[in-house]
Write a protein that binds this DNA or RNA. Structure first.
Length: 572
DNA sequence: GCCGTTTTCGGCCCGACTGTTTTCAGTCG
């Protein structure tokens, strides 16, 4: 039993880095903690296990001092270093560091000149002109800081899907240990696999009346209070500020309650209208036909009563799905190729061999290795020499033939003029190429669209990576005309990626059907930077399913040979 | 704080953008 998991440890290390930065510590010491946080995120499986077997101590960027901190966090849930820092640096400064455009230098200037060390005071100073009057500040800076504060406030209501997923799963586990709980189901936006989540909902099946169970919820670890309650629901507020709604149902109504807890509002409205038209009533926590109770122990039984096929949760969005045939959606096991991963050759934290072995265990037939290209210097982009070294290693591993087939790829920066990042004679040596934008985000829509279209004209490009550049809850997409990109991609035979990194999930599921209708092939790329990042794939599958995609719509559901044929077709 | 085919010290990634200035510091990816 460990006290703190991987995410918690990584968060603590990041906090230490931020506190040190605010204290004016050596930038490289700060960077060491940030890098260690990243490494810890990438450790597969149980952190305590990696501590025991010594693999954590061997990991790059983990030295004796940081290993000590991690050991402490994992075994006791606390860190002396972190707690000491908390007494020395006001927590409000840490929040200020979250604001885009505010770094330690400016924060220190603000604190020294105005005595401000928290967000509310910062906001007031930005409004009343004190901030703009500081040297090297101005009206624009104050305005941007206000925008940043507003953005943070809004974003704090939302969670990234993988965080919501992990939190729901952990809570389900705790709830299942309560007496009289027969089952616990994650519902709501997590179950619909939305890219960001505001409201978490869990349905409990119990063999006692709901109120008997609801009384016990306060005892769940981490629960601060019951924020709201009725005869069959309670809202739990956690110490961290988040809330989760828990609904309780007897087994005979599980289908109806689970559908209602899953949503969306529009889907439920369409379903209720359908029920009314058929002489049913779906208003409460059960299905009624006049005054006759209709048992709905499963979701299938509810939909069947309304003469509808069961609807996969991912598709329950605008209500229009009830009028369309239910497509056969892609499943995780349909993916034969694992695409888009970074190794220690660039900014990944797992070695090529470790990543390959982990992909073998996941059952992938082939793996497309795509480290960063040389323009991405901040991410350790590959020099021509490194490329040759990696190709030699890939050739050797393929010769041994003990793992999945390795494909030589690269995630090439699309330079500002639309060129790929190596001369053609090097590009020609790759089996396939993902082209992505990592810099110069601020072009006009026309310029950005033209830039990507020019990249697609290269016969070496196979896939456009994270095509809008958004970072969920942190950075807007860059301006780009997706319809023009789709039609050019279809014309050139270039695929477009669903980037499965839960920070991106880019393309957005809402435009997938349009892309497919225009003839664009889609690929799911994990953008894994570690063995742990292999798990990203399931989020990409969620996006594809929300977009209504099936196996035939996805490039990496094809065999390695067919995948390579797709890439080669462009070069002839 | 971490690392080492320059290994116990001295280096660690760098170019572009923004808002401020009028030549550049601070921030970001």
């Amino acid at each position: 039993m460990t006290t703190m998991d991987r995410t918690g440890v990584a968060r603590a290390l990041e906090q230490i880095a931020s506190y040190l930065e605010l204290q004016g510590e050596n930038a490289f010491r700060v960077r060491a903690f940030k890098a260690a946080a990243k490494t810890v995120q990438g450790i597969p499986g149980d952190l305590a296990g990696a501590l025991r077997d010594g693999s954590l101590a061997e990991a790059k960027g983990i030295g004796p001092a940081i290993l000590q901190v991690i050991t402490e966090l994992v075994t006791t849930g606390r860190s002396v270093v972190l707690e000491q820092l908390r007494t020395e640096v006001p927590a409000g400064l840490l929040e200020m560091l979250e604001i885009s455009g505010l770094g330690v230098a400016k924060i220190r200037q603000i604190r020294d000149a105005l005595g401000i060390d928290n967000l509310p005071e910062l906001e007031a100073a930005a409004r009343d002109g004190r901030l703009a009057a500081l040297p090297r500040f101005g009206a624009r800076t104050a305005e941007n800081i206000l925008k940043g504060i507003a953005f943070l406030r809004q974003a704090s209501e939302w969670r990234l899907s993988h965080h919501a997923h992990d939190e729901s799963a952990a809570l389900c586990e705790a709830l299942l240990r309560l007496p009289h709980v027969l089952a616990a189901h994650v519902a709501g936006e997590v179950r619909r696999r939305l890219e960001v989540v505001r409201d978490m909902v869990i349905v409990l099946v119990a063999d006692v009346p709901p109120n008997e169970l609801l009384r016990q919820l306060e005892a769940i670890p981490g629960v601060k209070e019951i924020a709201g309650e009725d005869e069959r629901r309670a809202t739990l507020r956690f110490a961290g500020g988040g809330t989760v709604q828990v609904m309780v149902t007897p087994p005979q109504n599980l289908g109806t309650v689970l559908v209602q807890a899953t949503g969306s509002q529009a889907h439920l409205a369409a379903l209720a209208a359908r029920a009314t038209a058929k002489g049913f009533n779906l208003a409460g926590a059960a299905l009624w036909e006049g005054s006759r109770f209709v048992a709905t122990p499963t979701e299938e039984s509810l939909y069947a009563a309304l003469a509808l096929p069961w609807m996969p949760p991912e598709l329950r969005e605008d209500g229009g799905e009830l009028d369309r045939p239910v497509p056969e959606l892609v499943e995780g096991r349909d993916l034969r190729g694992f695409l888009h991963c970074h190794t220690t050759y660039s900014d990944g934290t797992s070695s090529l061999t470790d990543l390959t072995e982990a992909c073998r265990l996941e059952g992938y037939e082939y793996v497309g290795i795509t480290d960063h290209s040389r323009a991405a210097a901040y991410a350790g982009g590959l020099s021509p020499d490194s490329i040759r070294a990696q190709w030699a290693e890939i050739d050797e591993l393929n010769r041994r033939g003990t793992g999945p087939r390795l494909l030589k790829g690269i995630e090439s920066d699309i330079l500002v003029d639309g060129a790929l990042d190596y001369p053609d004679d090097i590009l020609a040596g790759f089996d396939f190429i993902i082209g992505s934008i990592h810099s110069r985000f601020n072009l006009s829509e026309a310029e950005m669209t033209e830039r990507v279209c020019r990249a697609m004209a290269s016969p070496y490009l196979t896939i456009i990576g994270h095509p809008t550049g958004r970072l969920l809850l942190s950075r807007e997409a860059y301006r780009i005309d997706l319809d023009r990109i789709f039609s050019a991609a279809a014309a050139h035979g270039v695929a477009i990626e669903i980037n499965a990194d839960p920070h991106r999930l880019d393309l957005d599921w809402r435009v997938l059907a349009r892309a497919r209708a225009m003839g664009v092939m889609i690929s799911i790329g994990a953008d894994a930077h570690s063995v742990a990042g292999i798990a990203n794939m399931s989020y990409g599958v969620g996006v594809a399913r929300k977009g209504g995609l099936g196996r035939d719509d996805l490039l990496n559901c094809r065999s390695a040979e067919d995948f390579l044929a797709f890439a080669r077709a462009r070069r002839s």
